[in-house]
Each structure stands twice: as C-alpha cells, then as structure tokens.
Simulated scan of single mutants.
Amino acid sequence: MTHPGEPHTTAIAGRLNWLRAGVLGANDGIVSTAGLVVGVAGATLAGGPIATAGVAGLVAGAVSMALGEYVSVSSQRDSERALLAKERRELADFPEQELDELTALYAAKGLSEDTARRVARELTAKDAFAAHAEIELRIDPDALTSPWHAAAASALAFTVGSLLPLVAILLPPPHLRVAVTFVVVILALATTGALSARLGSAGVGRAVARLVVGGALAMAVTFGIGQLVGAGVG
C-alpha cells in the first residue's frame, strides 16, 4: 500500500523549483563555457578561435541540456500517467477497497478512524480520482510538467549563463581577457550560489564557497591544459 506523504506541491513551491532549476542551469552554462573559452585562451588569445569555441560550446551545451531535460521529464510524465491510469482502473474495479485505503491514509495522518472515514467518503463522493491522486500518489493530474517547457527552460538558462563568460572574454583587450573573465565568472558564481542557497534555505557561505572554488579550479585546469596543448601544437 502506498504510504501517505506531504501534500502536493503548491503553486509557489512549484515556481521556486523552476527558479532553482534555472539558477542551476545558468551555473552549468557559466562554468562549462568559462572553462572552454579560458582553455582556448590558454593556447591563443586570438578572438576568432575563442569566439568559435565559445559559441559552439554554448549551442552544444544548450542542446544537450534541453535534450536531457526533455528525456528526464518525459520519463517522469509517462510514469505519472501510468500511475494515474492504474488508479482509475482500481477505482472502477475495487471502489470499496479504495475507499478503505483512502480512509487508512487519512487515519495515518492523525485523524480518528471515524473522521478519516467521513473525510474519505466526502472526498470520494466529490471526486474520488482527484482525492486518491493527491494523497496516495502525490500527483496533480492537471499540473503534469510539460517536457517541452522543461527543455526550453533548461536551454534558456544554460544559454544565459554561457553568454556571461563568452562576452567577458571577447570584450577586453587580448592581454586582459583571461583575468577579466576569471573575475567576472567568480562574481557571477558567487551571486548565483547565494541565490540558490536562499531559495533552498541553505547556508549561503558554504554554497558560495563550493561554486567559487569549483569554478576557479575548472578555469585554472583548462587554462593550464590550453597552454600545454598550445605549446605542443606550436
């Protein structure tokens, strides 16, 4: 038997989840594109190769993020639809057993047996399917996530994040490109780290430190590799 869980996600919590996912997608774009363009800058400071690599990385990353999100959300949506279809069949074939199950679920939440039975009967009379979907499956049948929306949001977040290091490395003079990009990326990661921590009610300092250290290491490593490869090719 399915155990009772928390109430279904509210509209505000849903929006926060989307915002948190957007921040994480932007972080991916910032770090991956920064590492790529800084790595190329380690081999050459010419704007053409850096721009080509950055744009290619942006497009490839956005497509990859969108595809991954589409597949993930599609799988989740298929599973949710299968569970909802199964629940519809059980309600049609075993209405009394399903009423007993709903009663047990409310009783497990702390209601007395009589109150739980009365609540279950009233909800069943109003909309049995919605009642079971909410408390038993924790799914809102009218608010299933669209894989297309998720894919578009993921690609957009990655693109926005990627544009920051790409612009930062192309605008300054050649001898300042890596230094300016490093500073801009660190500041951006500190900002998104603080935002994601506040959205998740977590410690800001630790979240910022993780992102800043990780981003700095990524750029340092790729810059070093770029210098080695550039020296070897040259």
Rank of each mutant, 00 (worst) to 15 (best):
T52G: 09
G39R: 04
T115F: 01
N27H: 09
S72K: 01
A26M: 14
P95H: 13
T33F: 02
A41K: 10
A26L: 04
G54W: 03
L105Q: 11
K109R: 15
E80Y: 07
L36V: 04
K86T: 10
T103W: 08
L67H: 07
R20A: 14
V38G: 02
G42A: 05
M65H: 01
V71M: 09
A66P: 08
T115C: 06
L105E: 12
S64M: 13
G35N: 13
I50F: 04
T103S: 12
L36C: 03
T44E: 02
R81S: 12
A107D: 08
S72V: 01
A92V: 15
D28S: 06
R117F: 12
L91C: 14
E98L: 10
D114Q: 05
S72D: 03
L91D: 10
L58E: 08
L83C: 05
V71S: 15
R89F: 15
R77N: 13
D114A: 09
L99R: 14
I50T: 00
R20E: 08
D100A: 11
Y106R: 07
G57S: 02
A116E: 11
A34Y: 05
A56D: 12
A43G: 14
A56F: 12
D93S: 10
E101K: 09
G54D: 00
E101W: 05
A26D: 03
P95V: 12
L19V: 06
A82D: 07
A46C: 11
G61N: 00
T115G: 02
K109C: 03
L45Q: 13
G110A: 14
A116R: 13
G47K: 04
K109P: 05
E98K: 00
T115Q: 02
M65L: 08
Y70Q: 14
G35M: 03
V31E: 07
R117L: 01
N27I: 08
G47R: 12
G47P: 11
D78H: 09
G39S: 14
P95D: 05
V59R: 06
E69N: 08
G54M: 11
G22N: 06
L84S: 13
A43N: 02
K86W: 09
V63W: 01
I30E: 09
L91V: 11
Y106T: 05
T103H: 02
A60W: 00
A43S: 06
V40Y: 11
A62D: 13
M65D: 05
G29R: 14
V23T: 03
T33Q: 10
G57M: 03
G57H: 10
L36A: 15
G35Y: 10
R20K: 10
A51C: 13
A82K: 15
A51E: 06
A34I: 00
G25W: 00
V31L: 08
G57L: 07
S64T: 04
V37N: 12
E80S: 09
A92H: 07
L99A: 15
D114E: 12
T52I: 14
R88K: 13
A21F: 13
R20Q: 05
F94T: 15
A34W: 05
L91S: 14
Q76K: 07
G29V: 11
Q97R: 03
E96I: 10
A60I: 03
L111C: 08
G39D: 09
V73W: 12
G25E: 10
V40K: 03
G110H: 09
